[in-house]
Design a protein around this nucleic acid. Structure first.
Lengths: 199, 199
DNA sequence: GGCACTCCGTTGCTTTAACAACACTTGTGT
DNA sequence: ACACAAGTGTTGTTAAAGCAACGGAGTGCC
């Protein structure tokens, strides 16, 4: 169990799915109430109606649950826009930026201010997922030089831009911002525009 | 398991509680959509995310689930008004009538018209619970003659009145109706008014 | 210091749920 | 008449969750 908390969503024991859901729901509720640091594993399991020993059968500690929750949340944000099934395009890259913006704002709504663990976990997880997604896109193109470097710079740039956007008072909509950010990210990708399918 | 679906609410395996809840929730949703008759056990378990074999570990069939759902629903309606913890009084009897009215209206909201199985199950279960509650009250008084007969007539009268009320177009509020019905029920109880604590 | 308290992470054992498979009944249509 | 689907109950086996209990670590308190 400890080896693979990687959700395949389908074909997974219904009991496991339920336990994860219940824990995650109790977790976010408690975070809204007390903040992440103040929460104990006892709190989470009591709220979820799950035995404490069962918690440890699924997650190493509350930090692992946080990571899991963030990972799954962002993955769903990606799936919702069907970006995993798609190829590289200007439009899909734009949607990816929007997805990052929206995920950051929704998680910030839950997070009591200045909980660094929250921020750093989000950053690491989102960048990792952006990286692997963009890398997959670039590898499908086959004309791109050093896709690893390009994916790295893209993931950092996208997260950095979205983070700055979210911390800006009175920021524009995610859609508008994405249009602004898009050329910068495309530049970072250092792709000849010929490779990019418009729309 | 088949012997005791009597919910004690507390001190019950969390897994059992969850299974019951999930089944009940899926059940009412499906009733709203298709009506009771059209539902199969497969439908319920599929919707609830519960294995079909597990269903049969808890309930004999969908009729048993219906009974369980009604029983629990009305029991909660009683608990909500703390009538189980109380003694007999004019006010508590009034609250009991209100509880019956409200329960009937909420369940009718779920029930597609003219499903007799629904109606008859509700009637039987509610009357039984009214009976045992009123009987307990009367036995506490100790001055009441033939409490069994009195409780029987009260349960039939209360359900009958409430049922008539619910089927009347443009009926008054349950509170108003309860005030009307109260003297009739008290008469049925054939108690000397001296025994009744006012409020 | 000693004491009470709370949380942590883990263990052995028990209870419950999942799952696949089975024989059986009840239509439905061709 | 026959296959065919779809639902019903039931079974044996396996995996997950519950549970009580443990030692250990930190915290406050007198």
């Amino acid at each position: 169990m400890l080896s693979k908390p990687v959700e395949l969503t389908d074909k997974l024991d219904p009991r496991v799915k339920r336990t994860h859901q219940l824990l995650a729901r109790a977790f976010v509720d408690l975070i809204k109430e007390k903040g992440f640091q103040a929460i104990s594993v006892r709190d989470i399991t009591a709220r979820a109606g799950i035995n404490r020993a069962t918690f440890y059968a699924h997650f190493q500690d509350k930090y692992a649950l946080l990571d899991y929750y963030i990972r799954e949340g962002f993955r769903q944000e990606i799936d919702k826009r069907m970006l995993n099934a798609c190829h590289f395009s200007r439009e899909n890259l734009r949607l990816l930026i929007v997805a990052v913006c929206e995920f950051i704002t929704t998680t910030h709504a839950h997070c009591v201010p200045a909980e660094i663990k929250f921020e750093t976990s989000i950053e690491a997880e989102i960048k990792a997922q952006i990286y692997s997604l963009v890398l997959k896109w670039l590898q499908q193109l086959e004309g791109a030089p050093s896709p690893e470097l390009a994916a790295t710079s893209a993931s950092w740039a996208i997260y950095g831009l979205a983070s700055r956007w979210s911390h800006t008072k009175e920021h524009a909509s995610a859609e508008v911002f994405a249009e602004q950010a898009l050329p910068l990210v495309l530049a970072n990708l250092s792709l000849s525009t010929a490779l990019i399918q418009n729309n």
